[in-house]
């Protein structure tokens, strides 16, 4: 692929990437603590959880849907897995159970939307409360803490000097990128989001594929739960509050459209990195956490405004 094609087809991602690099450059100048190997690795590690949640969110948003329940599913899957882990169950099995919980919650969302014909906003709003309540009920509101070193290694070990959470994140991105760009499932996700009726009339089982999309979103939330639990050495029933907003932000900064039919995981990854670097930089510069919220909100709005401005220009 030559340069012209690259810009033609990936102009949007390149724009976000340029924003990210500019931000890094600014932070490098502003503080000596930013551009150090250990700080950058920390950012990558911190970003990994939001970035993984954003994978499922991106796929859902491509189908013109939304999932508000990712944070609650993360907490629920986390506490179930943690409780099982403490019963001396083999680690892979416990993780499998945690992932199954996430997948199950996601599929339930999907069925409510496809068979129950609920709008995604409503179905997942309900699930957001149900899964959160489930997590609190399951643990009586108390955190579940203390796991084996073998399990904790998922967050604390390294692979070629790269923190394990980052490695897992990259694997999830590669797998789902492949899913979106090289498989029938991916084509159907874009098609459903772009025009559901036309997709149905093209002979595609829209219900089944849409249900699976929400299942995938639940699954990625549960993967994030595994990492978070291992990192904190504790599963909290109140974990993952507001994660849906960070995931939606990373997705739209990355160029996905809430109208559906558009979006890439490369964009989302850059979007998540941008949010993570921004947070990290603001912390390094000792900006108050109150002001940080204002700044992050502003960045989200400006990013989308710039994007829409670019699109309108083409007219």
């Amino acid at each position: 692929m030559n340069w012209k094609n690259l810009i033609l087809h990936h102009g949007r991602q390149l724009g976000t990437l340029a924003g990210l690099l500019l931000l890094c450059l600014a932070l490098t100048i502003a503080t000596p603590y930013f551009l150090t190997v250990s700080n950058l690795l920390t950012v990558l590690e911190q970003v990994s959880i939001n970035a993984i949640v954003a994978v499922g969110m991106t796929v859902v948003i491509i189908t013109a849907g939304i999932d508000l329940s990712v944070g609650s599913i993360l907490a629920f899957a986390g506490v179930v897995m943690a409780t099982v882990l403490q019963r001396e169950v083999p680690v892979p099995l416990a993780i499998g159970i945690g992932l199954a919980v996430g997948l199950g919650c996601g599929l339930t969302n999907g069925l409510l939307i496809t068979l129950g014909r609920l709008p995604p906003f409503i179905a997942t709003l309900g699930m957001m409360s149900i899964a959160r309540g489930g997590a609190l009920l399951f643990t009586n509101g108390r955190p579940v803490s203390g796991f084996s070193d073998g399990f904790r290694a998922l967050a604390t070990s390294q692979f070629l000097f790269i923190p394990m959470p980052t490695v897992i994140m990259l694997v999830v991105y590669l797998a789902c990128h492949f899913l979106l760009t090289r498989t029938r499932f991916g084509l159907y996700a874009y098609a459903m989001g772009g025009n559901e009726q036309a997709t149905h009339l093209s002979g595609i089982n829209v219900r089944r594929h849409k249900t699976l999309v929400y299942g995938l979103c639940g699954l990625t939330s549960a993967i994030a739960a595994v990492i978070l639990t291992a990192r904190l050495n504790s599963a909290q029933p109140i974990a993952g509050m507001m994660y849906e907003l960070d995931a939606i932000a990373a997705t739209v900064i990355g160029g996905a459209s809430l109208m559906g039919g558009q979006g890439t995981l490369i964009g989302t990854l850059i979007g998540a990195l941008l949010m993570g670097v921004l947070r990290n930089g603001l912390n390094l510069l000792e900006v108050s956490s109150f002001l940080q919220q204002v700044i992050i909100g502003t960045v989200i709005i400006v990013a989308v405004l710039v994007d829409m401005g670019l699109k309108a220009q083409k007219k």
Partner: peptide
């Protein structure tokens, strides 16, 4: 409304009812 998925390319629209040929065993 019914014939095309407008945001998608020509390529992908043509693929839609023909996935058995474009995606044998699910892969592009």
């Amino acid at each position: 409304q019914l014939g095309l998925v407008l945001p998608l390319s020509i390529k992908r629209n043509v693929s839609l009812p023909n996935t058995h040929r474009v995606y044998p065993r699910g892969l592009l």
